[in-house]
């Protein structure tokens, strides 16, 4: 078995059905990428324009970032696929800890101290 692990394969075991599926998936990834580029452009335009007030820009940019986070995690990193139960629970735990950490630090060293 050990030498099997080091052996390359002459062909893929994928059936035509599986190949069609994977090509379709690849197209979906391209669409996800196009959406990400679009979101990035929107964020830069919102920040660069002088007409928009900061009270609108900041929540808007953060919302776009969160959407991009989910696109990366669920499409590029395949969290939406099956057999990702544990990765999902790890990542969700990490993100749940993130929000109070950032808020607490901003309050403690940003507002209380200054």
């Amino acid at each position: 078995m050990a030498e099997d692990m080091e052996q390359p394969f002459e062909k893929s075991s994928m059936s035509n059905e599986e190949k069609r599926k994977i090509n379709r998936e690849q197209r979906v990834q391209m669409i996800a990428f196009a959406v990400m580029i679009g979101l990035t452009l929107l964020a830069f335009i919102a920040a660069g324009s002088d007409m928009l007030p900061g009270t609108f820009t900041i929540p808007f940019i953060l919302l776009l970032a969160v959407v991009q986070l989910f696109l990366q995690l669920y499409y590029f990193m395949h969290l939406k696929d099956k057999d990702h139960g544990w990765p999902n629970s790890f990542m969700i735990s990490g993100l749940v800890l993130t929000a109070p950490t950032i808020v607490a630090l901003m309050l403690l060293i940003g507002i209380v101290k200054f």
């Binding site: 993130t98 950490t101 940003g110």
Partner: peptide, 21 residues
């Protein structure tokens, strides 16, 4: 994935510090 979840919290601390300071 365990590693990346840990990295998430580490970066959160650095983000929080930056936004505070």
């Amino acid at each position: 994935w365990v590693f990346l979840a840990g990295e998430t919290t580490m970066f959160a601390v650095f983000f929080g510090t930056y936004l505070g300071l």
